[in-house]
Design a protein around this nucleic acid. Structure first.
Length: 271
DNA sequence: ATGGGCACCTGGCTGC
DNA sequence: TGCAGCCAGGTGCCCA
């Protein structure tokens, strides 16, 4: 699902709805998420006041006066804002009801998503402490990516999807960023030139920013907090376009599997 | 350390 | 119509 642009779009939808509100009740229909919800999950959250909604990598961090609710959307998760009491549908697993009369509802058909309540500093949580720099952060730059690619034989596409190198780049935006940087996804990371590395840093930033602007990419399950889709799908150059004409040079887009994930690229534009 | 592969889960689509 | 097989925005963990 959701890569950084979809998670950031969700964050922006939740922030004005949740900040300053008190959590009046938590209704759980399914505890078996990627990690089962603990027995004290509801009690830990009820009565807490939300201080803000942040994001780290593809995680949402709902800050409260007593700890942080950590949410991951997995492959198929979404969070929607509804009136409290709206009838539940398939795969609606958790409702967070607020004192405004609204509810934030977690839906996730595949249940690869997760929720945790963290009492201490979230950055020390095991799921967050080893994460690489944010793509929009000053510490993600050409010097950094240059040093992290040297000596690496993995394909560059797999490297930029590695959350120990840079966070937020998933299967769609990895292919799209490499197209925009004119680099073949199959190149060994360590063989990229300095100029190519610099191009790639810029391309990752630009494609993620452009996707955030239009609410992310909806392929199947993802929706924004108001239920509307993201519109970046119309701007994809290569993802899921196997055999179609490259939008730049008309060469048929190619497909291959890397690390058990589909990769798409233009064999003419990308070298 | 690095690289490769599997597992978790449900639904939608294809082809026989 | 039924069903097997394959594919899908992620990532933690295990093995060599």
């Amino acid at each position: 699902m959701p890569e950084l642009p979809e998670v950031e779009t969700t964050r922006r939808g939740l922030e004005p709805v949740m900040t300053g509100r008190k959590i009046t009740s938590i209704r759980v229909a399914e505890r078996r998420l990627r990690w089962p919800l603990p027995a004290d999950f509801e009690a830990a959250l009820v009565g807490r006041r939300v201080t803000g909604v942040g994001r780290r990598a593809k995680y949402l961090l709902v800050g409260t006066d007593a700890g942080t609710l950590l949410v991951h959307l997995g492959m198929s998760g979404s969070l929607r804002v509804l009136a409290a009491g709206t009838a539940r549908e398939a795969h609606d697993h958790v409702d967070i009801e607020l004192d405004s009369g609204r509810a934030v509802r977690f839906n996730d058909p595949r249940r690869f998503g997760s929720m945790h309540f963290i009492r201490g500093a979230p950055e020390h949580h095991r799921l967050l402490r080893s994460l690489a720099p944010e793509p929009f952060g000053a510490d993600f730059n050409a010097d950094y990516l240059w040093s992290r690619t040297r000596g690496r034989r993995v394909a560059i596409k797999l490297l930029i999807m590695n959350a120990a190198i840079v966070v937020g780049v998933g299967n769609i935006y990895a292919s799209e960023a490499l197209f925009r940087a004119r680099i073949s996804p199959r190149r060994a990371a360590g063989r990229l030139s300095r100029a190519e590395v610099a191009r790639l840093v810029g391309a990752i930033r630009r494609v993620l920013a452009a996707a955030i602007k239009v609410g992310g990419t909806t392929l199947r399950d993802y929706v924004r907090t108001d239920g509307s889709p993201g519109y970046f799908r119309q701007k994809l150059f290569v993802y899921e376009r196997t055999g179609a004409a490259c939008r730049v040079c008309r060469t048929p887009i190619r497909h291959a599997v890397q690390g058990q994930r589909s990769t798409y690229w233009c064999p003419s534009c990308q070298r």
